Amino acid sequence: MTKVIRILAVDDDVHMLNFVAAELRQAGYEVVQVTSGEEALLRIESETMNLAVVDVMMPGIDGFELTQILRTEYDLPVILLTARHHIEDKERGFLAGSDDYLVKPFESKELLYRVKAILRRYNHPENDLLTIGSLTIDLKSYEARSTNGTLLTPLKEFELLSLLASQPNQVLSRDLMIERIWGIDFQGDEQTVNVHINRLRQRLERFAPDVQIITVRGVGYKIEVVR
């Protein structure tokens, strides 16, 4: 059974809150969204959290005060978000007990890298195995296994397969795949994704025929189990 990693996202800026929550959910985390420090403390009383992403500048209980409470009373790791660049604010954040600090604006990849690092540090590792149909994907060994044996693929194909399998039955756009697998600075085009997908399909036909990558015309691809 996949272990659920639940992250508390706290920000009075609804647009930023929605952005952070969407990126974390896209990466496979469960997210609880709240718009104030007071609401955050109410939610943590009733739900188990593994990490908090907290905005500094909030009315009422601000990010510094909330961080101190979360660290001292709940031993919860915290990433602070701020629009400020002053070193004094960073120092105050770390003194309050934050584990990391991100200055807005930031790229989603940077947030996700820091979340993963902190979860590893606090012994809340992400699940290293993905299972879909007869296929088991080992994110540590970069191997896919089924009853037909072990499938070894080039790295980009493995990363594409893992990305699709992490969100079964959900359509992922080609643009998203390019950003996640090749990076936002990639100079190629969508045809690169198509070529890799076609190769993956050929491998899966022989190796795990119950797992299929479906084309959604004009959008992208999804992976699903065919019974």
Rank of each mutant, 00 (worst) to 15 (best):
E224G: 11
D175E: 11
D185I: 01
L66D: 09
R71I: 08
K140G: 13
M49V: 11
T2P: 11
A208M: 04
S108P: 01
V34E: 09
Y29R: 09
Q33E: 14
G220R: 03
D11A: 04
P209A: 02
Y221I: 04
D75K: 15
L129P: 05
S146P: 01
D138T: 05
L161I: 04
A83G: 15
D89T: 05
V195W: 05
D12A: 08
V20F: 03
F19K: 04
L41T: 07
R6I: 06
D128C: 07
L200Y: 00
L119N: 11
T147C: 02
Q26G: 15
T72V: 10
R25K: 12
P77R: 07
Y122L: 05
V34I: 11
L152V: 09
H85P: 00
G97C: 07
Y113V: 14
T147S: 14
I61N: 02
V10S: 09
L176K: 10
L135Q: 07
V211Y: 02
R120C: 03
R180F: 00
L8G: 11
S173Q: 07
I178R: 10
Q202W: 00
L176F: 13
L81C: 06
L129Q: 15
V193R: 04
F19W: 02
E143M: 10
L70C: 06
V56K: 00
R227T: 10
F186C: 02
A27T: 04
Y221T: 03
I184L: 09
T131I: 08
T136Q: 12
R227D: 15
E190F: 14
G93F: 06
V211P: 02
V219K: 15
S46V: 13
L80D: 06
I181T: 04
E38R: 14
W182L: 15
N198R: 13
R180A: 03
I178L: 13
H85I: 01
E39H: 13
M16N: 03
R120T: 06
P154T: 12
K156R: 10
R43A: 06
V216E: 14
E190H: 14
V14Y: 01
H124G: 00
Q26K: 12
L160P: 02
V31H: 11
Q202K: 15
L164V: 07
T131K: 09
L41V: 06
L42I: 12
R84C: 05
I118E: 05
G220H: 01
K140T: 14
T48L: 14
T82I: 04
L200W: 00
L163E: 13
L119C: 05
R43K: 15
R227C: 07
E30L: 12
A208E: 03
N148F: 08
L95N: 12
V171C: 09
V211C: 08
V216L: 06
V53F: 05
I118H: 08
E23N: 11
L111K: 08
D13F: 01
F106R: 07
Q202Y: 04
E224I: 06
R227F: 11
I197W: 03
G97M: 08
S134G: 06
R180G: 00
P125V: 03
G149S: 07
R180S: 03
L151V: 02
L51A: 02
R84A: 05
S46W: 06
E190Y: 13
L129R: 13
R71L: 04
V216R: 05
K222N: 00
E110R: 10
L129K: 13
M57V: 11
Y122H: 14
E190A: 12
